[in-house]
């Protein structure tokens, strides 16, 4: 083992220090993103999605559906009355069409009056390990969603292993205890395609406690989940022209490899 690999591994071990045991990661489907995430999105951790325009909410919903499918229980969607008015009420027919294979029944929508109620409802829901996933929607940067509150959410999710997506609409980035943080917006469909195709998103992974970051173009396929639309079209061997950047320049551990090694050692 050469020196840099060794350092990378130590760095990874250090980053993992004090973190709870790994829960099985839920692959998104998009291979590059899964690789950066170390196999996929972890249940039992806080994932933040900052919506940038109208597509962001959809991306958060799709992540939540993905985690719900892996969880088994129903999806809980906690949102305020204001959010339903401003961003539209949940439409079950459209949600079902996004993931026809999902067998968890229609989502349970909890409508709360404000941020304090939303956090209280989230605490209740996260305490039940049989919930498929919690999609918590918060608008703006309310003072009560501070570092303590997000730490509390992350801990509650860790305890029960429930998937947790925190959708931030109309918010700027602030400190939080999130495991990953995504900036998501809609992306245009392929220019040469006249048909109404699957939704696409341009997402940026701007924060990841285990290292790798990146920009991704993702397309949602109702059957298989997220796919890389460019890889689908391009001949094999040509790389997608988006950039993959890792947290610390110079060390590029493949997180999944490092994880595997860590797990092996612990066992």
């Amino acid at each position: 083992m050469n020196k840099s690999a060794k350092i990378a591994e130590l760095r990874h071990a250090l980053a993992r220090y004090g973190l709870p045991p790994d829960r099985p990661a839920v692959p998104l489907g998009e291979p590059r993103a899964d690789a950066v995430l170390g196999g996929g999105l972890r249940r039992g951790a806080l994932h933040e999605v900052f919506a940038q325009g109208w597509g962001g909410g959809g991306f958060a919903l799709l992540l939540a559906l993905r985690l719900t499918a892996a969880g088994g229980g129903p999806l809980f969607w906690v949102r305020s009355d204001y959010a339903a008015l401003e961003y539209g009420a949940a439409a079950p027919e459209g949600i079902a069409a996004l993931m026809p294979s999902l067998d968890a029944g229609p989502p349970v929508v909890v409508r709360v009056a404000g941020g304090a109620d939303a956090l209280a409802a989230a605490a209740d829901i996260l305490a039940c390990p049989h919930v498929g996933c919690l999609l918590l929607e918060m608008e703006g940067n309310p003072r009560l969603l501070d570092l303590t509150a997000s730490r509390r959410l992350a801990l509650a999710a860790e305890e029960s292993g429930v998937g947790l997506i925190l959708l931030r609409e109309g918010a700027h980035q602030d400190p939080s205890a999130a495991h990953t943080r995504w900036l998501a917006r809609a992306a245009p469909s392929r220019a040469d395609d006249d048909d109404w195709g699957n939704p696409r998103f341009a997402v940026e992974l701007v924060r990841h406690r285990l290292g790798g970051l990146g920009n991704f173009l993702m397309e949602w396929d109702p059957q298989t989940g997220f796919v890389d639309p460019l890889r689908l079209r391009l001949p094999v061997g040509r790389l997608a022209p988006s950039v993959v950047s890792f947290g610390a320049p110079g060390c590029a551990p493949h997180p999944s490899d490092a994880l595997m090694r860590m797990r092996g050692r612990r066992a």
Binding site: A91, A97, L98, P106, N198
Partner: peptide, 28 residues
């Protein structure tokens, strides 16, 4: 939700491999 049938499934109006034809959020 207390009154709803827990095992209810949603009727699918479109072919499963089609892109969604209905929005996932409806303005009130």
């Amino acid at each position: 939700a207390q009154d709803s049938d827990f095992d209810a499934t949603w009727p699918r109006h479109q072919r499963p491999d089609d892109p969604p034809r209905r929005p996932c959020r409806l303005l009130e």
